[in-house]
């Protein structure tokens, strides 16, 4: 039996009100220790107000080679952007 600790992904909320952002990963035997380690590894300079950890095996990720099929379809949908529409300045911000 391997005694290697599992890998955890670490997410930090930098400031009140913001989303947690992925900052990196670390090894730990369980969630409680993972949070302690994350505190020591990723927030030594007061970078956060909250920490999330999730075991890396639970992250499902898209494959880099899927980038085209996933994201290219939105490239030609320029009408999803507000700047596509010519609205005269006189009518104010819209």
């Amino acid at each position: 039996m391997s005694s290697e600790w599992p890998l955890w992904e670490v997410f930090i909320r930098g400031q009140h009100g913001l989303n947690h952002r992925h900052v990196g990963s670390l090894h730990a035997p369980d969630a409680e220790v993972a949070i302690k380690h994350a505190r020591d590894v990723y927030t030594r300079r007061n970078e956060g107000v909250s920490i999330w950890v999730v075991k890396s095996v639970y992250i499902a990720a898209s494959s880099p080679s899927d980038k085209g099929p996933l994201f290219e379809p939105s490239n030609d949908k320029v009408y999803r952007h507000p700047t596509f529409y010519d609205i005269p300045d006189e009518i104010g911000h819209m």
Binding site: G17, P82, F84, Y85
Partner: peptide, 24 residues
Amino acid sequence: YGPYSRAMIRICKEESFHQRQGYA
């Protein structure tokens, strides 16, 4: 409420297109 505020920020970013296409 954090999650509500963050949802609103996302929504507002996308909402401008809605009003402009209507006015157009």
